[in-house]
Structures are given as C-alpha cells and as structure tokens.
C-alpha cells in the first residue's frame, strides 16, 4: 500500500528537509540519508549558487520536491509561469512525485505567501480538485496534496477538514501528503479529535507523511517547525503508519535549525514506528527476481 501510484511506487523511508545551513556538513561528511525534500521555489531560479548546490546534492542523493506556493485552493487560475518553472525543475531533480498544500494564498494576482485555510465547501472541493488535476496533467507526475495547520474556520464550511481532504483527493485523483503535526496543531486550535482525522483519511492515497515540531501559546498552537517532534504528534504518526504502512516520511525543521546530525537523528526516530519491510517485499532487493 505504501509504495503506490501516488509516490511513483517508491520506498524511500525516512528523509530530511534540505536546508542551506547544512550544505557544508553534507558535502564534507556525505551522511547516508534516505532522501532529501527540497522546497521547489528555492530552486526555481535561472542559475547561480542555488542550482549549483542542488546539482551537487543530486549527484549523491534522491530528492523529492515540495512546493509552497501553487495554492491549489485559490479561486484564481494556477500561475502558468510557476507551473512551467516547476516542471523544468522536476526534469532536473527527477522527483518521483511533487507535493504542495491544500490551501489558498493569492487572489486577483496578489500574493500573501502564506498557507491560508480554505472554507470546506463543495464549491472549494470542485475548484481545488480542478486545479490539482491541471497541475498533475501539466507536470506529468503524481501530485500529493498536504493538509495545513490552521488558525481560523469559516461560517460557510459544509464539512470537516478530513472529509474535505478526501473529497478533493478523490475528485483530483491525487495523492495525500499527510502532515500529522499539522493535524495535531489544527485539532488543538479548532477542538476536534486528531485521531478521528487520521482514522478517516483514505490510507491508500497517502504518498508521504510529514512530521515536525510546533510551538505552544496560551490560546493556540503554532506550526513553527523549530522544535523536535512532540509526543502527541508521534502518537498520531504511529497510528498513521499503522493504517498506511511503510510510507516515505520527512521531518521538517525550518527555524532555529540545529546541526544536521541533530535533525537527522530526530527524523530517524520515525523508524521506531515505521514498518521496516513492505508487505511481501524485503528491502534487500527481493524484487530483482521478477526483474531478471
């Protein structure tokens, strides 16, 4: 189940987000890492250092692209220049799938650069699914859509967030990047049961899982990606991989970034919960019998 058509039938295991402060360590020490997730937008430039560094990473590591500004849920049409640049980058990285968020962020061509929450309406389901379909067809790659952390809800919503996520994924026929930290943060802010969310997600569509740390304030939780993963989030993760099987898992750490080893070790804790073999396929390469 976990290597599926939404992640290009890959089995990547545990990865970490590629961050600039770690470049020197990675190039010098060449740590063994399952894969790196990159923020696509950081490399959608014409040249220079960003692409040169990426090429060096690509020589040695598998890279998966994660985007932050396609805004599938914006009422605007998808930005065509963005799509073209994104596709060019996918050819460079050979990413098996591409992810971005179930949110909106721009209207009438003005951008917030934030992952803004959608109203969970049928109109938003249709619009968002159509945008994801367009991206998927244009990119010629599987797209996984990620649930975001949110701090607001709208009067006009007609369903729960997890019903909305499932409806969109089904209509777009796309994958899901399940962020269990975001589920936890939103559940705290909105007062729902995070396990109900995890249990409701269509497990066979989950292409990838995100784990991360967040910050606690008196009246809300904020998705800051500047801490180790908290216990309730590990609990949700355990339940998620129970349902989804061995799924590509990535730790996000974006602020107050510690050493590479610290980030990597935190990510590798996921192996405590992640099934170490895919059903019927040993990781030692039993598939090669068929390929011969």
């Amino acid at each position: 189940m976990a290597a599926n058509r939404f992640n290009g039938y890959t089995d990547y295991g545990v990865g970490v987000g590629l961050r600039i402060p770690h470049y020197d360590h990675i190039f010098a020490e060449k740590p063994s890492v399952g894969w790196f997730e990159i923020i696509s937008e950081n490399y959608m430039v014409d040249g220079g250092q960003p692409l040169a560094m990426l090429d060096r990473i690509l020589e040695q590591y598998r890279v998966v692209q994660h985007g932050v500004s396609l805004y599938f849920g914006s009422a605007d049409r998808l930005n065509q220049e963005h799509l073209r640049r994104l596709k060019a980058l996918t050819r460079r990285t050979k990413t098996p799938w591409v992810s971005d968020h179930l949110c909106w962020g721009s209207v009438d061509g003005t951008y917030s650069h934030d992952l803004l929450p959608l109203p969970y309406t049928w109109e938003a389901v249709r619009k968002t699914a159509a945008n994801i379909r367009e991206a998927q067809e244009f990119l010629e790659l599987p797209v996984a859509v990620e649930n975001v952390s949110s701090y607001a809800e709208f009067h006009c919503s007609e369903m729960t967030e997890w019903e909305f996520l499932n409806e969109v994924a089904e209509r777009a026929d796309c994958g899901i990047l399940l962020d269990v930290n975001n589920i936890y943060v939103s559940s705290w802010n909105h007062g729902f049961d995070p396990l109900e969310y995890v249990n409701a997600v269509e497990a066979e569509r989950v292409a990838q899982i995100h784990i991360a740390g967040h910050s606690k304030f008196e009246k809300y939780r904020l998705d800051t990606h500047d801490h180790p993963v908290l216990d309730p989030v590990w609990k949700l993760y355990r339940r998620a991989v129970e349902r989804c099987g061995r799924t590509a898992t990535l730790l996000e750490w974006d602020d107050r970034i510690p050493s590479f080893d610290e980030v990597h070790n935190e990510a590798l804790k996921a192996n405590r919960y992640l099934p170490q073999e895919m059903a019927g396929v040993s990781l030692a390469g039993a598939v090669s019998d068929d390929a011969a």
Partner: peptide, 18 residues
Amino acid sequence: EYMTDSARLEAGERLAIY
C-alpha cells in the same frame, strides 16, 4: 462576519494571527 469563534479565540483574534 466570515470567520467563526473557537472555544479559546474569537474570530478577530484568529484573523490577527494571520
């Protein structure tokens, strides 16, 4: 007018976070 209150935060406080 368009955002709901939560158990802990009023709509305005939620907008203010964003």
